[in-house]
Design a protein around this nucleic acid. Structure first.
Ligand code: SF4
Ligand code: SF4
Lengths: 161, 161
DNA sequence: CGGTTACGGATACTTCGTATCCTTAAACCA
DNA sequence: TGGTTTAAGGATACGAAGTATCCGTAACCG
């Protein structure tokens, strides 16, 4: 069970956008070159984010994407679910219905104990992701990344928009 | 991102074994017929559980598998990790190293902020699974499943061992 | 108008989960 | 002792899903 690498790309792109001056758009091409990932494929991830209302895009020269909301209004879960989907990691096939002893017309009042536990774990995973916002990430990166490098990154990105 | 359905099978097989009288072995063939899943493929999942020390197998007629430990000593996480693996759901490709502005010889003191959050969420998922034991599951099933059906299941399974 | 960009559909490639088959070795039984 | 049953594990085929690329369209800009 592995998350798509688009999740990583999407999160990094968001991290980059948080550091950009408001109203400025970043083109897919620039983001792809910055991370050295295939432009066309990264585009799909950004489209997912756009569709989810996390970022917004504009066309034409100087076009691209920017955050559609305040960084404090965007959680990790928003980003992850936009590209990975909202379905639980545990899929229930209802194999208990195959039980040969079970009366054919028996009704299942509720999801079985196994599924409930697995879904609870999935909820805990999502709760953790929902608890971290892009604004939190920005603050962490501020102390993680040397100010000099951060400035150089912003400059590099803006020069190509 | 989806767990293999072997996880579901493994958990259900464990649930069944908890209800069996101690020392009795259940053959792969019987477990497969009970759940209506392919015997040869289910066998792989059971082998994983066996290798993880969760169940133990014996050969020959009346052979099969049984729990290797007390139900209170086996957690959901043990079962899930045995078949699904212990690697985190978030794989870090270290794409921050591709940053063209980054000094080539720069050392990364620690995993970046993005990865730390994702791994924290993964830890929360595992923590939830570690908190539920097979003995807990047995207790829940006891109130979920009519006693009559439970008895019939046990009888059906024992008759074929 | 021509160039740039997001957008979305279609398509190929690659990886991984699913499933089956076969052989070996151990345990049991007649 | 020899034949049967079963777990164990390697090899292989198949299918689904993730990865990646290509192309046409529509919007934006100078
Ligand atoms: S986990 Fe429970 S609800 Fe899901 S298929 Fe198995 S028995 Fe049914
Ligand atoms: S998540 Fe962080 S550590 Fe992992 S690849 Fe991205 S930048 Fe590197």
């Amino acid at each position: 069970m592995l998350l798509r690498n688009q999740v990583e790309w999407a999160l990094h792109c968001c991290a980059v956008m948080v550091g950009m001056p408001a109203e400025r758009f970043l083109a897919t091409k620039v983001l792809a070159e910055f991370h050295e990932v295939p432009k066309e494929y990264l585009s799909k991830a950004l489209q997912s984010l756009s569709q989810a209302g996390i970022i917004e895009g504009t066309l034409g020269p100087n076009g691209g994407y920017r955050l559609a909301k305040a960084p404090s209004e965007i959680t990790f879960l928003d980003v992850v679910e936009a590209v990975e989907g909202r379905t639980s990691s545990f899929a229930c096939t209802e194999i208990r219905r195959n039980n040969p002893c079970r009366p054919t017309r028996m009704r299942d009042p509720k999801p079985c104990a196994v599924a409930r536990v697995m879904w609870e774990a999935d909820a805990a995973w999502r709760k953790t992701l929902r608890g971290v916002r892009l604004s939190d990430l920005a603050k962490t990166l501020e102390s993680d990344i040397p100010a000099e490098l951060a400035a150089k990154n912003t400059e590099w990105l803006l020069a190509r928009s």
